[in-house]
């Protein structure tokens, strides 16, 4: 039992991190982990579409913007813990790893999994975001309006 087992905001965060992770990085991080538990499928990986919605004017009534590909699955560990994977794209192995990690994060291996997988993923996402933000900041301009001489 870990404090994270009943903590929904924490679980939302790690599932979100796993969904947005680059499949190749998640794969590499998982390779470093020795013991993978056996699992039974509750829902084998399935590729589908999610309709993304926007709002008119950014803040008004919702409208359908278009779909994105999502892969999902659900599995159960021998101890009975259930893990869900919902990830962007069509990579079934990505969804499987996400579900396994979601399940393990609800067990006493949570601390080790967080250190080995979630923290590096979060750091990579933060670095990628900061790099783009820094490049954007370098293109920030001040436009000067020329005085037309009316006054």
């Amino acid at each position: 039992m870990t404090p994270e087992q009943t903590n929904t905001p924490a679980r939302q965060r790690w599932m979100s991190t796993l969904a947005k992770a680059a499949p190749a990085q998640l794969h590499a991080l998982c390779d470093g982990l020795d013991e993978w538990p056996a699992h039974t499928w509750l829902r084998p990986p399935e590729v589908g579409g999610v309709m993304v919605r926007g709002r008119a004017g950014g803040t008004g009534a919702p409208f359908n913007l278009g779909e994105m590909t999502v892969t999902r699955c659900a599995l159960r560990l021998p101890c009975g813990t259930v893990g869900h994977g919902y990830v962007q794209g069509r990579d079934k192995a990505h969804a499987e790893r996400a579900a396994l990690i979601d399940a393990l994060m609800q067990t006493d291996r949570a601390g080790a999994i967080r250190a080995a997988i979630l923290t590096p993923l979060e750091e990579a996402a933060q670095t990628a975001r900061a790099t783009r933000a820094a490049k954007a900041a370098a293109t920030k301009v001040d436009f000067f309006t020329m005085v037309r001489g009316e006054d």
Binding site: E46, V47, G48, G49, V50, M51, V52, R53, G54, R55, P62, N64, L65, E67, T69, V70, R72
Partner: peptide
């Protein structure tokens, strides 16, 4: 050909 999994909350 994609099954519709659901819809997002408005971005």
């Amino acid at each position: 050909t994609l099954p519709r999994i659901g819809h997002s909350t408005p971005v």
